[in-house]
Structures are given as structure tokens and as C-alpha cells.
């Protein structure tokens, strides 16, 4: 049985696991964005926090993913369900690119433009929402793109703790020493990552280029 025949024979399971994979990575990225983007904004306002926050996110990133899943296992409520745990671990991983890009994006806005806005009498809030965030949006979306692709990749490990996703095929294939089973998980996961990268990359270019280059 070749690879394509295997995929066809198991198409329902491939589809289910792909959807599960998208759900895991999707929820994790959204969660990470909801925390990471405000945190990135916060550290542009309170510069003393920038080192500890970026350092913390950096440290999380250096923990091997399998170990991170393991660390979280004893946590109350979160550890009870594999899905919850996987989402939390993935979200923690996705935090760094989101915080870093939000911070860098806002810091990279032309200081003359920000000062002009302040001198015109914009409040801090208006300055943030009307000037800084729109001008940083290209860089922030680049962070979302990196975080999404990262989550899709790391989500394959979630199967190790029974959270499902395309990693199921990969781990099963490894146990069976069967390359076709491994590829049935690896190829759809890679395709997902490529599609997400492409779509968000186009959005990023749209936001980053049209009127901003002078």
C-alpha cells in the first residue's frame, strides 16, 4: 500500500486529526495574541518591565516542548484534560514572537510622527490606537504569523500527552516503524503551516507597505 492509498483508506481520521490540530493551534495562537499583544504594548509604556517580560518569554521558549508539556501535567484543572494542557503549553510558546514584535513594531514608529501627534493634542489612548498600532500593524502581524506557524509545528508534540492532532499519526508511525503513517501526519501538518504562512504573509505585506513607504 503506497502513501496515497493509505491516506484515502484513512481519510476520515486524517480529516478529524487535521481539524483537531487546527483547533489546538488556533485556540493557542488566539490566546497567546490576547495576552502577548497587550503585554507588548505595556512594555512600551513601562520600559522597566521590558527586560523581565521579554526575558521571561525567552526562557519559556528555551524549554524543550516535550518537557513543557510534562511540567504542566501536575497543574490543577489544566492538567486534568490533555487538550487544555496542550493549548496552554502552545500558547506559552507562541508568546515570545507576539510580545517581541508588538514591542519592536511600536518602538519602530517614526518618533517625529509620534511627537507630532502628541503636540497636536492626541491623548495617550488616541496616540496608541490611531497612530502607533496602525503603523506597527505590519510588524505585529509578522509576529502573529511566526506564532501561528510555530504553534502548528509544536502542536504535533501534543499527541505525546494524548491531546490528539496530527501528531497521533507521527507517534503511531514511529512506534510501528512505518514511514507512511508518519508522513500521513507530517505532510498535512507541513501543509497547514505553509498555508497559514502564506495567508498571513499576504496580510502582513498589505498592512506594511501600501502607504507607509515614502
Amino acid at each position: 500500500m503506497n502513501f496515497l492509498q493509505f491516506m484515502m483508506a484513512n481519510r476520515q481520521q486524517v480529516l478529524d486529526l487535521t481539524l483537531e490540530h487546527i483547533t489546538l493551534a488556533g485556540i493557542a495562537t488566539v490566546l497567546a495574541a490576547l495576552v502577548g499583544i497587550p503585554l507588548g504594548i505595556l512594555i512600551t509604556r513601562v520600559p522597566q518591565l521590558s527586560k523581565p517580560v521579554l526575558g521571561g518569554a525567552n526562557i519559556i521558549q528555551t524549554i524543550p516542548s516535550l518537557a513543557l508539556f510534562g511540567f504542566l501535567l501536575p497543574a490543577p484543572w489544566i492538567g486534568e484534560r490533555a487538550g487544555r494542557l496542550a493549548v496552554l503549553a502552545l500558547a506559552l510558546y507562541a508568546l515570545l514572537p507576539l510580545i517581541r514584535n508588538t514591542y519592536a513594531g511600536i518602538r519602530g514608529v517614526d518618533p517625529a510622527v509620534v511627537e507630532a501627534g502628541r503636540a497636536m493634542g492626541l491623548t495617550d489612548r488616541q496616540l496608541l490606537f490611531q497612530v502607533e498600532l496602525p503603523l506597527a500593524s505590519g510588524v505585529i502581524v509578522a509576529g502573529v504569523r511566526i506564532a501561528t506557524v510555530l504553534s502548528i509545528g509544536v502542536a504535533t508534540i501534543a499527541a505525546a500527552i494524548g491531546a490528539g492532532g496530527l501528531g497521533e499519526f507521527i507517534f503511531r508511525g514511529l512506534a510501528m516503524v512505518n514511514n507512511q503513517v508518519i508522513l500521513a501526519g507530517a505532510i498535512p501538518a507541513a501543509l497547514l503551516a505553509l498555508v497559514a504562512d502564506f495567508v498571513l504573509g499576504r496580510l502582513e505585506r498589505r498592512l506594511g507597505s501600501v502607504h507607509l513607504k515614502s
Binding site: A112, V113, A116, R118, A119, G121, Q130, P134, L135, S214
Partner: peptide
């Protein structure tokens, strides 16, 4: 600030 008009070199316009 809203009662003072401010003009800087090259306009300082919002590019977006």
C-alpha cells in the same frame, strides 16, 4: 496643545 498649531519640518504627517 489643541489650542496651539504646530508645524515641523517635512510636515510630520501621519503616513497612514
Amino acid at each position: 496643545r489643541r489650542s496651539i498649531g504646530y508645524v515641523i519640518q517635512d510636515g510630520g504627517l501621519f503616513p497612514h
